[in-house]
Every structure is written in C-alpha cells, then in structure tokens.
Computed example of a mutant assay.
Amino acid sequence: MFHIAHPEAGAIGTRLAAVRAEVAQTGTYRHTTQELSYGARIAMRDSGWCTSGLPWRRLKVRDLRGLRNAAAVANECVEHLRLATNGGEIRPLVTVFAPDSPSGPGPCVWNEQLIRYAGYSDGIGDPRYAAFTDAVQGMGWKAPTMRSRFDVLPLVVETAHEGPRLFTLPPEVVHEVPIEHPDLPWFGGLGLRWHAVPVIGNMRLSIGGVSYPAAPFNSWFVGSEIGTRSLGDENGYAAAKPVAQALGLDTTSERTLWRDRAVVELNRAVLHSFDRAEVTITDHHAESQHRLSWLRARQRHSGNRPTFRLDPGSAQRARTGGPARFSASESETTRPQSPGRLAELLRHHNDRSSGLHSDDSR
C-alpha cells in the first residue's frame, strides 16, 4: 500500500527482500519512519475516529518506538496532551511507542482516554469509572482532600519489566471548558465542565503484522459525545433530569419527551461553551454526513490493512483497572516466537506463492 501511494520510495521488490531477510534473522521487522506514518494515518482514517475536517494525510505521527519504560511513556503522553491541546486549536496526533516483538512485549496504557474523571463509591464523579477509581486507589492513588465531580484520574502505564505504574497528569495539560448556555443564565450554576481533547489511550495499532500496544491518538470531540453520552446519560453524570427540572418540564413520564428536550439544551450548551472558549469541536449533524461519506467511500477491510483495534483485555482494564496485561494468568501476554519458526512459515508461504506445492490446484 505504501509503495503504491509513494512510488518515489523505490522498488517494492527490494523492500520486500529486506523485510524477509530481517524476519528470517530476528523474527520481526522494523517499519521505516515513512511506512509507520503512512500506516498510522490509514488506520486513523479507517477507524471511524477521523472526524470531519481532519486532513488525515497531514496527521502528525510521533515516532517514539525506542521508548519502553513506563516513566518515559507517561512523560510523552503528557507531551502528546500538550501538543494536541494547542491552546484550544486541537491538533490531531498519533504517538507510537515500542511494538511487541520476539525480544519482548511493548508497553500498554490502561486508560480508555488519557483524561478521564474519577467516580467514587458515594456517587460523586463519573460512575462509569467507579471500578477503575477503586483499582487505582488500591494501587496507591490518593484522591484530592476536597473531592469533586471532575477529579482527573492518574495515568496507568504497564510494562513487562515494571508492571503497572501510576502517573499524575500535570494540571497545566488538562485543559477544561466550563459548560454554559447561550440563553439560560442559570445553566452555569450546574457546575458542569469537560476536558478539551479526547486522546484514545488503550487501542492497539497493527500495521503489516507488527503490533503497537501503546499508540495514543486523537482528533477532536463531537459535541454529542459530551452532551448526550457523558453529561446527559444516566450511566454518566445524569445531568438531563436537573436540566429538565430547571426548565420546568414534566419528568413524571418518558412520554413527555423531557429527556430529549433536556439533551438538546445540553448539546447546545456544550457547542456554545467550546466555541466561546475557542476550542475545536464539531456537531453530530456535520459528523453524520461525514461518516456516511466515509462509509460509502472506504475500502473493504482485509486482515492486512493497518488498523486500530481494542483488545478485550484492554477494554476490561480501562473499566475495572485490571487484570494486569503481564500477569502470569493473562492469556493476552505476548509470547515471543522463535525466529526460526517465523522464517519457516515465511519460506512455506514463498514456496506456495511460487507454485511448488503439488496440492495448489486443489
């Protein structure tokens, strides 16, 4: 795919020969910087997270494949947040850390997004992350003395040689937007706010058979992700009912559609507040048109195309704070393969491609 898109990169046969030789010797191969950037951009484009207005060809890819230690990964996640926030003019980024390889597995980030809010057992905060909050408290995280509904959770980075480690995000990289309404002066009294940039932390980037378990990426928010799903939903901050009551709506029955009317005002407030704070955001109507165009135009996926994917274990860790990826019983733990075995499989594939097997006709 890369050589088709970039014929100036040279003959594909030369590159394939080098890859085969590297796989035969080491059991894996290393993407060139250009291949990595191209693969990450294609994965981002095809993931469904590529929002309208995002020029995917100019997506910035940070190549940090040399980093395997938890502290270094956490520091660069902080830098990703700083660069992506960009004073409110959100900059789409992908940061790629060390891959899984025969010599050892790469690091992983537990957090679903680099910025998420704590949920406490007494109902304060975001109930979607109550189990995760309990887990990180058990690992040593101390909640603020004066707890609030929007306490930022620590970053959890796990490596095979260090296990899971906690890192506090510096306040200066957590850019938040207070939520106010353009027509309802009382709305600001609800005390709602949200962070400016959605950096997905726990999806695995797969390019050409090489797997990068830590590759945080971001575009920008769709307003309804905040207003409808995070703030309005009963499983989130359940703000729809207080808004409906303040509007004087009849909340005794769902048939009055009070919830729909309240969520509309929540979404209006989110878009108004982000625009007022000069933070990039898009609305769900523009995004719907973009997604429909994307679905019509995208190529059908094969197992070989670059992709971001979510492992079941990664999804569980993001919600419950465990189990660790590298625990002895964790089936997801990377098992280094023998370079000799991979070379044997590669030779078998090449033989079949050359028509040397007698059963090819069948």
Rank of each mutant, 00 (worst) to 15 (best):
M1D: 14
F2V: 13
A9G: 09
G10W: 15
T14F: 12
L16D: 05
A18K: 08
A18E: 12
A21E: 11
H31R: 10
H31D: 06
T32G: 11
T32H: 05
L36D: 04
S37A: 05
R41H: 03
A43Q: 06
A43K: 01
R45C: 05
D46F: 11
S47P: 00
G48A: 03
W56M: 05
R62I: 07
G66C: 02
L67F: 12
N69I: 00
N69S: 14
N69M: 10
N75L: 11
V78P: 01
H80G: 07
H80Y: 00
T85C: 01
L93K: 03
A98T: 12
P102F: 12
G104E: 13
P105N: 07
V109L: 10
W110K: 15
W110P: 08
G119I: 15
Y120A: 13
G123Q: 03
D126T: 12
P127Y: 14
F132I: 13
D134Y: 00
A135P: 01
Q137V: 15
G138I: 04
K142E: 06
R147E: 05
L153A: 08
P154L: 06
E158L: 12
T159W: 09
G163K: 00
P164E: 02
P164D: 09
L166P: 08
T168E: 04
P170M: 09
E172D: 09
V174P: 04
V174F: 06
V177A: 03
L192P: 04
A196R: 06
P198A: 07
I200F: 04
G209H: 05
S211G: 05
P213C: 01
P213F: 02
A215Q: 03
P216V: 00
S219Q: 09
W220K: 04
G227R: 11
R229S: 13
D233W: 13
Y237V: 10
A238E: 13
K241I: 15
V243S: 10
V243Y: 12
V243C: 14
A244F: 01
A246N: 06
R255A: 15
L257K: 09
L257V: 04
W258Y: 15
R259Q: 14
R268E: 15
F274G: 05
I281S: 01
D283E: 11
A286M: 08
E287T: 03
H290Q: 03
H290D: 11
W294H: 11
R296I: 02
Q299D: 13
G303R: 14
T307D: 02
G322F: 09
P323N: 00
A324S: 15
A324G: 15
S329C: 07
E330R: 05
T334G: 10
T334Q: 09
P336W: 01
Q337R: 03
S338L: 07
G340W: 03
G340D: 09
L346V: 06
G355Q: 01
D359E: 02
S361P: 00
